[in-house]
Design a protein around this nucleic acid. Structure first.
Lengths: 190, 190
DNA sequence: ATTATCTATAGATCTATAGATAATGC
DNA sequence: ATTATCTATAGATCTATAGATAATGC
């Protein structure tokens, strides 16, 4: 082999991580494989020995981004509970760096237009996130997973709105209003 | 002129409405002008006498979709208040027909990546929707616009999630959980 | 004569494939 | 000999432009 053992796996991992960032920052449809590959320091043609299609890369990228998110979520939950999750998720920092942030906030409508394979990957990882959240949320609620789902939807919708509006002051207002709502829903404030 | 007076305006309007539907159902980046024009019964080259660029069409399409949404919202609010809005927004019908539905739910991350012009158009129309909603929401809240913003974010995020997951049963659960949350937030249930 | 639309095309980019290259392990 | 990557390219599609066409109003 041209490069040492494990080199191919390293390339594959690098492609996935770069794609996960580009997809989140520029959108899935708007991101070409050529750009991903050149960012990874490789050429166009080296893509297909790693993945059978762009769709395959999309699935792997979504999985990768959401696994990272799951680890982060665990840490923040342990450190400061739901309160801290809401603060971090709806921070100006997260709003201003979509490429490193929540895949759902960056990609959800596009994921909804993907094939079943990618949507299945998304569904599994979403459920994992929601279950992590559910353990810290709506302690007196009948359906804690339902509360977690809705809280996550609120966070995600809020972040998307804060990213889309052209007025920075309004964007900050949206973050605050969403955080209040998420606290009410999750039961941090009763 | 080849066609009677007002014919050009009619074509322009048709292009905008078809684009507004295609963008919402297939995504902005994934929709080519050729497809829009052929759906409108015109050829590629007839696009540019109507719009100076694809970006210009995007702005007009977002505005068109949101003006329609505003009219619908007014009707539903008058007929059944926030309760009815939540039910209609989170209905399986709305979930299953993104092309005719909420532009925010279908396009928000992509709108966030557009230029200032489109984001300004979006911002103005979002504020109009939010103000309509605010008049019927959080009657005892200090910041009713904030409550309306968060309620809308919850609806939108919920619909996106319900569209993206691959399991129909989970999708229905998401709609229900989101509706409960929106009712709590908006003050329909205290 | 005017003008809404059409035909034709430029030039860039897209996903995907085929075959060549070159550095390693044997 | 194997194989990770490269070069080169096919074939489709993208946005955008230039000039031709044809049906109307004058």
């Amino acid at each position: 082999m041209r490069y040492g053992k494990g080199h191919k796996d390293a390339s594959r991992q690098r492609i996935i991580e770069i794609a996960a960032e580009r997809f989140r920052s520029d959108g899935i449809a708007a991101t070409g494989l050529a750009r991903v590959m050149s960012d990874a320091g490789l050429t166009n043609g080296a893509f297909y020995p790693h993945f059978k299609s762009k769709a395959a890369l999309i699935g792997e990228s979504v999985a990768s981004a959401m696994e990272q998110q799951s680890s982060q979520l665990e840490e923040v939950l342990a450190a400061g509970g739901v309160e801290a999750v809401i603060a971090a998720y709806l921070s100006p920092e997260h709003r201003d760096h979509p490429g490193m942030g929540c895949a759902s906030a960056a990609l959800l409508p596009e994921v909804g237009r993907e094939g079943v394979d990618t949507r299945q990957v998304y569904t599994e990882h979403l459920l994992a996130l929601v279950r992590q959240l559910a353990a810290h949320v709506g302690t007196e609620a009948v359906d804690r997973e339902g509360v977690a789902l809705a809280t996550f939807a609120t966070l995600m919708g809020t972040l998307q709105m804060a990213r889309a509006v052209s007025d920075p002051h309004l964007s900050d207002r949206i973050l605050k209003a969403g955080a209040d709502a998420a606290r009410r829903l999750s039961g941090s404030v009763v």
